[in-house]
């Protein structure tokens, strides 16, 4: 019996993406219980070179047999410089995953090569063409500098993510509290993503014993405008969700904007002022709607919008 999955939504909420080894049945059998928005089944670094085929096998059956419900299922495939990526894509598409994370993306061309292979696989396995989403991981200075073209490379692409481990190696820097070593990469990638209208995700935080450091980094992510973060341990999930949750004040303001806009729109008015004197037009509405969506996902919304 194969579990049907709904058509992936390109711009859904993706606050948390949790990595796990696609080869470990104990991990992937019910990875959704921890409440991450997306899980990232890894065929790349977590899997030894001589285990790639068995990992694909376990991944395929997981995708077919396990009901992941509302949790998005993304697969990280091996890099384009390896002999594995084409077969990885075939398994992802045949199994029906929601999206593919392209490792070590360095150019728009990389994304387009994967896009073409995905299309081919979709045709091969009778999957609706265009169903499978993509995201690109930037892991090198070259990838970061080409973020602008990468972010615009494919209609399948929903976002870009930074991969700090490799990037720091290339830059010959180590992890610095406060993230000065990543400032440019984060800032530039965010700009490229926003310019292209796609999502943007920050890299993993690997010291599991440093709760304070993790919270500081998530706080910075939120302040910089990231949509979400890659994670390596379930215990990080709730922290990100809590820190991304809007405040009650923000929720109230967002509600006011959405309601007022709807009322005024039905009366044919496009610009109006709220009771606090703030001028509102249609440009404010998507932001307000996003706040309400986040509040709902965070389980703190009590209104009826």
């Amino acid at each position: 019996m194969s579990i049907p999955r709904p058509k992936p939504e390109r711009f859904r909420l993706r606050r948390t993406m949790m990595f796990m080894n696609a080869q470990k049945p104990g991990l992937i059998k019910d990875a959704y219980i921890y409440g991450a928005d997306s899980i990232m089944l890894d065929l790349e670094d977590a899997v030894a070179e001589n285990q790639k085929d068995s990992a694909r096998f376990s991944l395929y059956h997981a995708l077919k047999e396990i009901d992941y419900g509302n949790t998005e299922v993304i697969v990280r495939i091996n890099g384009l410089d390896t002999p594995h990526w084409k077969e990885d894509i075939r398994v992802c598409v045949a199994g029906g995953c929601d999206g593919i994370r392209i490792a070590k993306t360095e150019s728009a061309h990389d994304v387009q090569v994967v896009d073409a292979a995905v299309t081919e696989a979709e045709k091969e396995f009778g999957v609706e063409v265009g169903r499978t989403l993509l995201m690109a991981a930037l892991e090198s200075p070259k990838g970061v500098l080409n973020a602008v073209e990468i972010c615009q490379a494919s209609p399948r692409l929903f976002g870009v993510a930074l991969s700090g481990g490799d990037y720091r190696k290339c830059m010959q820097v180590k992890v610095i509290p406060g993230g000065i070593e990543m400032l440019f990469a984060r800032g530039f990638m965010l700009n490229a993503a926003r310019a292209a209208g796609i999502q943007c995700f920050d890299t993993v935080f690997t010291n599991l014993n440093d709760d304070e450091g993790f919270r500081a980094e998530v706080k910075q992510n939120v302040e910089m405008g990231f949509d979400g973060k890659s994670l390596i341990n379930p215990k990080q999930i709730q922290i990100v969700h809590e820190m991304l949750a809007p405040t009650q004040k923000e929720i109230a303001e967002a509600e006011k904007i959405v309601r007022a806009f709807r009322e005024h729109a039905s009366e044919g008015v496009g610009v109006f002022t709220l009771d606090n004197g703030k001028m509102i037009d249609i440009a404010f509405v998507p932001g307000a709607e996003r706040v309400i969506k986040l509040a709902k996902a965070s389980g703190i919304y009590e209104g009826d919008l």
Partner: peptide, 9 residues
């Protein structure tokens, strides 16, 4: 164990 920790929390 993340599962135990989650249940405990």
């Amino acid at each position: 164990n993340p599962r135990d920790l989650m249940m405990a929390e």
